[in-house]
Design a protein around this nucleic acid. Structure first.
Lengths: 243, 243
DNA sequence: ATTACTATTTCCCGAGTAA
DNA sequence: TTTACTCGGGAAATAGTAA
């Protein structure tokens, strides 16, 4: 976390080392080495933090002891709670695009008994034999489609009938235009690329919502943050407490 | 959170406003007002964040759209996880001090049936009729005693007998010298001030641990962070997402 | 309206050094 | 050994202004 200001980095460093409940013995040369800065800067940093009331310092003989004040803890706690808000709240993912007519493949799929049966079992409805195809309009929407694909937790297994093999299909529940429950599907080998969303429902969505080719629609899903942020983590830690 | 570097504050601001999943329409004057800085700085800030690969920008006509990149999210997530480590781990609170002989009051209390009975019920042992008194040595220890007092979750209720009234006593389980289970008590109206810790146990702690007046002892307790940090929170929020 | 360039000022960092 | 001062150079913020 290179670009965090040194003040916070020092405060976090001290907190990690136990400086919330214990006075830590720390010297400016040691501190400076940890942050690859000069002894003078380390000294100045402690002076500033003390002046701002974020740490208490006590010089006993030749060593000084440092501890976070309530205000110092509050600073970090505020920051923590703000970030917690951001990362723990449900993640609303929105895709926007326009309805278009597909190749008729979706319709075909959703009338194959092997899929129909699984939809009924795993999603709880009898699918209307056709998919609603949506071309995504923005880069955001396309990126978000990929997130949804990663997160899609319902799996329709592939199978064979006497004619051909059918691939696996991942699926996730979404809302169409904020109100209509639907399911977005991700066929393992789709005819479309990641700029197209395919939706199924027990209803004919075109009829029910009065959609025609070119209609603007909004697909939204709410994800659990824990799963959503997997893969975002970088492996570099912020700082290590003293040995 | 005044002293966080502007880079992070902007990144957090954008994340709060939904910039993790959505491209946000944001202008440099608006941004500058939010952070009480100049329009030029806001502009430069976005340029820097983009150059560092933390945000994506797209200028469409006269407005620009901003979204955090994976790297940008990773930055904040790292910071979040570091703070989470600090604030969610159990808090070990340590007090150090020296054994001294009290006024004999503790001994008296711990032989009063009204207390003895409650200790047996609520703590599960028959108390040795006497307290171990410890004068705390450092400011840290005294502060930590106050935290323990606040946190002490076992309550021995006051009562009356035919002679006098006895006040409420709060109590918390601790370890003496890292190994010996004991209970630290906080009489509502103690004879001692906050620089003295009073311990009870089913054993005579002096005998069991070979302690005499002046012996250095270490009292430790492990607290749940959620309760420990109550009261640290400041009421000022870090930043507000745009209206 | 915007964004962002160039100049000036302000602030921060590190070397030298004292206590 | 420490901590922390002064001071010079460089980075960052603001003001003015162009596009």
């Amino acid at each position: 976390m290179q670009s965090l200001s040194l003040r916070e980095r020092v405060l976090i460093y001290l907190a990690e080392a136990g400086g919330i409940t214990t006075s830590l013995r720390i010297t400016t040369p040691v501190l400076s080495k940890h942050f690859s800065t000069s002894q003078q800067s380390a000294s100045r940093l402690l002076i500033i933090l003390e002046k701002e009331g974020l740490i208490d310092r006590r010089v006993v003989g030749r060593t000084s002891y440092v501890k976070l004040t309530q205000k110092g803890v509050a600073r970090l706690l505020d920051l923590y709670l703000t970030l917690k808000m951001i990362f723990e709240r449900p993640v609303k993912v929105v895709l926007e695009g326009r309805v278009f007519s597909g190749y008729g493949e979706g319709s075909y799929y959703m009338s194959v008994p092997g899929y129909v049966k699984q939809v009924e079992e795993k999603l709880g409805f009898l699918p209307y034999p056709g998919t609603l195809n949506v071309t995504l309009l923005s880069k955001d929407s396309i990126e978000n489609r990929m997130f949804l694909q990663k997160y899609a937790d319902i799996e329709l297994s592939g199978f064979k009938d006497d004619r051909r093999t059918y691939g696996n299909v991942k699926a996730i529940r979404v809302l169409l235009n904020d109100t209509e429950p639907a399911v977005m599907i991700f066929p393992e080998r789709s005819l479309y690329d990641s700029s197209v969303a395919e939706l199924i429902s027990q209803y004919n969505l075109r009829d029910k919502l009065g959609l025609t080719d070119g209609s603007l629609v909004r697909i939204s899903a709410v994800l659990q943050p824990k799963i959503f942020y997997e893969g975002f983590k970088s492996k570099i830690s912020l700082s290590q407490p003293p040995a």
